[in-house]
Amino acid sequence: MRITPVMMGIITAFLAVAAQAYLFLQPPPAYGLCVVCHGRDLTIWLTSALFGLKRDVAVISYYWPLLTVAGIFLGSRYAAITSAEYRPVAGENPWVAFGCGMAVMILGLLIMGCPTRLLLRAAYGDILGAVGMGSILLGVVAATLVMRRRAGA
């Protein structure tokens, strides 16, 4: 069966809401799915467990870390292998990707969420979530305008 983006959006929203409402994935509220925050929780939980540093994570992942990001990686690896889409490619410039990854993580922790959690927060009734999403939209528009100008020149 082919999974369309609309179906993926609805399934993901259902899981993220059910995780908070019925499976104790809070506080903070609207924390059902966030790649940035859950990734931070897992990384900082591991470093603090290994090196005895201060454990500055969300309240929910103080005792046990959230393994969402590991699940996403393994689940998509399984999907890629079963659909014969797994093939090693070079991708883009590794150092640009490295810098972008680090900057997106740092900015994401400042904004308290990745695009996914900002949408969840907006749905939860947080105005700052909607503001952040609008701000991200402006950033994407600026980047596409720059890309177009470079392609045209």
Binding site: V35, G39, L74, E92, V104, L107, I111, P115, I136, G139
Partner: peptide, 26 residues
């Protein structure tokens, strides 16, 4: 930070979720 995330994610060719999926496909 929203402006920065929007710009840099477009340059990096996807949101953090998509980057995990891309890495998992090699």
């Amino acid at each position: 930070a929203g402006l920065g995330i929007g710009y840099l994610s477009t340059v990096a060719n996807g949101c953090p979720l998509r980057q995990h999926v891309l890495a998992a496909s090699g």
